[in-house]
Amino acid sequence: MTDQAMTLPETSPAAGLLPQSMGRMTLTEWAQMPITWVGLLSTDVAAASADLQAQIGAALPAPGQSLPCTGGHILWAGMGQALVMGTALSSVAGASVVDQSDAWCALRLSGPDAPAIMARLCPLDLGFDQFEEGAVARSLIGHMNGIIWRDGADSLTVMVYRSFAQTLVHELTHAMRAYAARLALA
């Protein structure tokens, strides 16, 4: 009685739109990876941090920070909240755990002009000498709420909710194109 071919193909948030390269910059979509939201049930950080340390080798990061952990990274994501990227979790002591692997569109903006591109979209100072490796911020990206993560020496990862994927790609590539044209003047 079951439908014979019960397999559902996956579609990534920015499917068909990326990668794109302009000037010295490349924009790629992170491959779908486990993203787990961890939300503290109370102001007690200790139990959750200890459990996370035991499970993934990293405690809850301080505000605006991320830490490498087993299989990926754990990112601060707001008051009493963190996102574990790259590793699935089923429970954490003293915290709520929710699978958000499909909720986010995570794009990686690589190249030396990443801060300049983001300066067109985000009111924060994301200069590589200011927003250091591992730093995380929640802010506006254009008109969207999102997360910005300095995930590498010359890259920023920008995350918005999945449904905004097209707008985010448009905003970033628009800024990349304009910045490449500006660089070409020099």
Binding site: W37, G39, L40, L41, S42, G80, Q81, A95, S96, V98, D99, Q100, S101, D102, A103, W104, Y161, R162, S163
Partner: peptide
């Protein structure tokens, strides 16, 4: 209260 919540609108 011991409670935590988050939007999962986009997960599903």
């Amino acid at each position: 209260m011991q409670v935590a919540f988050t939007s999962v609108t986009e997960e599903w």
